[in-house]
Design a protein around this nucleic acid. Structure first.
Lengths: 335, 335
DNA sequence: GCATGACGTCGAAGCGCTTCGACGGGCGAA
DNA sequence: TTCGCCCGTCGAAGCGCTTCGACGTCATGC
């Protein structure tokens, strides 16, 4: 293994000079810097991560806690994770993967052993047991999603309430008067995940504001469940012409089910969704949707963390505004 | 931060004794050990990961390289990653997440900086550019999948050839004489990913052996593509009664398409798949399938790595035998 | 009874890096 | 010309842990 003293000898300087030349933390003459850099390149020098972490008390590693639970769309988690890794690398950091299963003890462990400098926590619950811990930890963290009380924490997410509103408003603008929300599986609501409830809030509030008649229907993530909901909607709300879907796996099956029940999309029924653009575009009838910007959230989360690590203050709440993309699944209500 | 000297003082022993007491690397009297453990607990002692890594030249971190590319079923990757993390934790290791995007440089970086002790590489290509690097690295690695030449490497995967065979043999046993394989998207074959080709090999070999007439059809991962393949199959092979699907996203849409074309599953057409059990069970007609045991592969991969880290020799190739689970989608050919 | 060895513990060295204080030489100001 | 200052570099001190060799003690065997 080639170490800093090897580089120093090869460049004819002291180890500390090598360190400063490579880190830029003190001014070094241009000429010396180049000699050092070349020596490092020639020898293939790679600073030992552990040694560096010990001396600088910075590991340059971030922890990412991913959810495992049912009702969460896996591709979204994956895309998010990838974007975190990619962005972290741009800031010269690596990412340690933790599962939610590890719980608070896992967070405490990686923080206390100085394995990581900072943490990103996904799938935050309204009253998440990890909150007190995160608040007390001496390391910065960012949460994806909003708990009931986010005082003293840094949170970021799509503005799901506004997303729900945007969908309804779009339908209202098109003249629809009776709308329904087909939501996430019941267990997602039961365990008080904030984002699902916020969609409902936004949906309901906007519908009320616009004087629409509305209803909310949690739905399991299976095609069979989608079919049942479709039938139920037809039966109970024959005047229905607008649907908002917040449940990725059933988006396509639900549309399929409506069509099999004789409802054309968008001819008889306009459909909007809150889901990744990728999914909205891959359905046979491309769906008007508010994008779930996982990649952007991941990127922003890492950047918030970098700022905090740099000692800057950051806003406690970052709500990404919804962007609604019109596609083929919505049209004005037929007269 | 509480350090080992604090624990030592509190327990009335030397730091080295604390180290030995906690690691068990040298015999320590039961009484002393208990005093040390209690002191550590009382003070909330957490050894500093960097210091430990520096002194022991072991970081207790594994690198996991995940694929990003098209045509790979995301939930499988995710399940695999989770199982790697979970198993690694059982062996007191953590997992650093790398994307394939980082390429060889990324592997070299984490290995050379001693950030990780060992590596797990997913989605290995037949002639993967990372192979020479992995062979030359001084750190052990395990690959998920088999390259053309696996000499000197440790590889593990489902035995995809046997899986293809198992599906065909099951159909043959049920009396089917004309079978088709609906495979992965074309790009998967083009980039020479071993597992897709092995399924084809197994499928074809078994069909030939049993004297079945067979054909192979790559298929994009969209419902529309599934419909096209279904139509094509009906048109070109009216005598077809057995189908093997190796393409997760289209399993359900394909069956749907067959039924819409008037073919009952399994009445007119028996369908088997190579996919996660979870998926096979969630289709409306539960599908007879060979399981894609991602969790088991992940677990075994970590265990292989642990053995290598412990200095034991491990087999170069580990092929998990296929397990075919009969479900509702297959039945004997109607006379 | 004394040498032998095993057991339990200690002290010190050192892992490879960062960082702090210091120092020498060059320059501008007085 | 001299003083003071800044720039660029160096040396040394650790960061917190593991590990090696050594040492004292006690039981064992002849």
């Amino acid at each position: 293994m080639v170490k800093i003293t090897d580089v120093a000898r090869h460049a004819g300087v002291s180890p500390s000079t090598v360190s400063y030349a490579l880190s830029g933390k003190r001014p070094i003459s241009e000429e010396t810097r180049q000699r050092v850099e070349e020596a490092a390149r020639e020898l293939g020098y790679r600073p030992h991560a552990g040694a560096r972490a010990l001396a600088s008390s910075r590991s340059n590693v971030l922890a990412l806690v991913i959810p495992l639970r049912a009702g969460i769309h896996v591709p979204v988690v994956m895309q998010f994770a990838v974007s975190v890794v990619t962005t972290a690398r741009k800031h010269d950091h690596d990412v340690l993967l933790l599962t939610q299963e590890e719980g608070e003890e896992g967070l405490r462990r990686v923080a206390d052993t100085a394995l990581v400098d900072a943490l990103i926590v996904m799938d935050v619950q309204l009253r998440d047991p990890r909150l007190p811990l995160l608040r007390s930890l001496e390391r910065p963290s960012v949460m994806i999603g909003f708990p009931a009380d986010s005082e003293g924490l840094t949170c970021i997410d799509l503005d799901f309430k506004a997303a729900g509103e945007a969908c309804v408003e779009h339908l209202a603008r098109l003249g629809h008067r009776v709308v329904a929300l087909v939501g996430s599986p019941p267990e997602v609501y039961v365990r008080q995940t904030a984002f699902a409830q916020r969609v409902v809030q936004g949906f309901t509030a906007a519908a009320d504001r616009s004087g629409l008649s509305s209803s909310v229907h949690p739905c399991e993530a299976s095609p069979a469940a989608a079919r049942l909901v479709a039938e139920q909607l037809l039966r109970e709300q024959p005047a229905l012409t607008g649907v908002v879907v917040h449940n990725e796996p059933i988006l396509e099956p639900l549309i399929e089910a409506f069509e099999q029940l004789g409802l054309r999309v968008p001819g008889d029924l306009s459909v909007t969704a809150i889901c990744p653009d990728e999914l909205a575009e891959s359905v046979r009838v491309p769906v008007t949707s508010v994008a779930l910007p996982s990649a952007e959230v991941g990127e922003r989360a890492v950047e918030l963390l970098m700022k905090k690590l740099g000692g800057s203050a950051v806003p406690e709440a970052t709500l990404l505004p919804p962007r609604l993309a019109e596609r083929a699944s919505t049209m004005p209500r037929s007269a």
